[in-house]
C-alpha cells in the first residue's frame, strides 16, 4: 500500500550564501591573509598568497588573525573583517575548524 511520510530535513530559512563576483583585475592590487587559527594555517596561507602575488604583480599587504579571544572554532572579530574589507581586494583564509 502506498503511503505518505514527512520529509525530515526542515526548510532553509536563511538564503544560500552566494559567492561575490570575481575581482576583475588584481594586478597591482593588495592581498590579505586571514589566519583561521589552526596550526600552521598562517604559514600555508601566506605562502600561497606570496606565490599568487608574484604571479599577478600584487602585494601581500595584511596578514592577520581573527582578533582577540577568537580561535579556530569561533567567528572572526567584526573589526578584523572591516579592516580587511577596507585594506585589501582579496582575502585568503581557511574555512574549517
Amino acid at each position: 500500500m502506498n503511503m505518505k511520510i514527512h520529509s525530515p530535513e526542515g526548510e532553509l530559512l536563511e538564503e544560500a550564501v552566494q559567492l561575490s563576483s570575481t575581482t576583475p583585475l588584481l594586478s597591482g592590487g593588495k592581498i590579505g591573509v586571514l589566519d583561521n587559527g589552526k596550526p600552521n594555517a598562517n604559514l600555508l596561507l601566506t605562502k600561497v598568497a606570496e606565490v599568487l602575488a608574484e604571479r599577478i604583480d600584487a602585494t601581500v599587504s595584511l596578514v592577520t588573525g581573527k582578533g582577540e579571544r577568537a580561535n579556530a572554532a569561533t567567528a572572526c572579530n567584526p573589526q578584523v573583517v572591516g579592516m580587511l574589507a577596507e585594506e585589501v581586494q582579496l582575502v585568503l583564509t581557511g574555512s574549517a575548524d
Binding site: 500500500m1 502506498n2 503511503m3 505518505k4 511520510i5 514527512h6 520529509s7 526542515g10 526548510e11 530559512l13
Partner: peptide, 19 residues
C-alpha cells in the same frame, strides 16, 4: 513561518522501503 510540510511517497509499509 515555514511553508506547508513536504511529503514523500513510500511504496509500501515494509521497513526496508523507508530504509
Amino acid at each position: 513561518m515555514a511553508n506547508e510540510p513536504l511529503f514523500l511517497n513510500l511504496d509500501d509499509e515494509d521497513p526496508e522501503s523507508i530504509y
